[in-house]
């Protein structure tokens, strides 16, 4: 985190507003099932990472609680190519885990700008923290609630942003859902 950033100036608040709007609009694309449009928001070098969380002894959380990006097995540790495949699969119309499509709502809250570089006035990259509550309902009776923290690295792309890195920390150990067939 840059110590020199002015976190009280107008530029900071404008940037925060801009980033919030972007994240809400992104959630709308997903919830409106505009998956191809959503893919356009992802940088080509995207890292999309959701660790598996483990029950560990007090004092070992930093070191051992979450699986690590780049090693072993996580729920997601993938790139844009793989996410594009996931979208292609849904759009085949015969991906039965999402056929018929689920009803999904993304609630995004607790949005905080954590960093902006090189400055708030001329931010080309921002790190933003948030919470998600994703509600999935499918077919008749299936309902799943996914709650957790997100940390995104957004990169300026013209008048908008692209997501260069998304880390999703889900508050579950044994996954309490049969599938992760939706995006976070």
């Amino acid at each position: 985190m840059s110590a020199t950033l002015d976190r009280h100036g107008l530029a900071w608040f404008q940037l925060k507003q801009d980033v919030e709007d972007f994240l809400y609009a992104e959630a709308d694309l997903l919830d409106q099932r505009r998956f191809r449009d959503w893919l356009d928001l992802l940088a080509d070098d995207l890292v999309y990472f959701m660790p598996i969380r483990r029950n560990v002894k007090f004092g070992q959380h930093d070191e051992k609680e979450n699986t690590r990006q780049g090693e072993g097995i996580s729920w997601f540790d993938e790139d844009k190519w793989t996410l594009a495949k996931r979208v292609d699969q849904i759009l085949t119309g015969v991906h039965y885990a999402e056929e018929p499509l689920s009803r999904v709502t993304h609630m995004v809250s607790n949005i905080r700008l954590l960093d902006a570089s090189p400055s708030a006035e001329d931010a080309r990259e921002v790190t933003v923290g948030s919470r998600f509550l994703v509600h999935q309902n499918r077919v008749e009776y299936e309902t799943y609630t996914f709650i957790g923290r997100r940390t995104d690295l957004l990169r300026r792309a013209g008048a908008s942003w692209q997501i260069a890195r998304r880390e999703m920390i889900l508050d579950q150990n044994v996954l309490l859902a049969k599938n992760l067939s939706i995006f976070f």
Binding site: W75, D77, K85, H95, A177, N179
Partner: peptide, 19 residues
């Protein structure tokens, strides 16, 4: 490991349909 994750389990593109 990357192939396993995209193939298998609840986030796997193959096994979601099994579930």
């Amino acid at each position: 490991r990357r192939f396993y994750m995209r193939y298998s389990g609840p986030a796997g593109m193959t096994e979601q349909d099994d579930m």
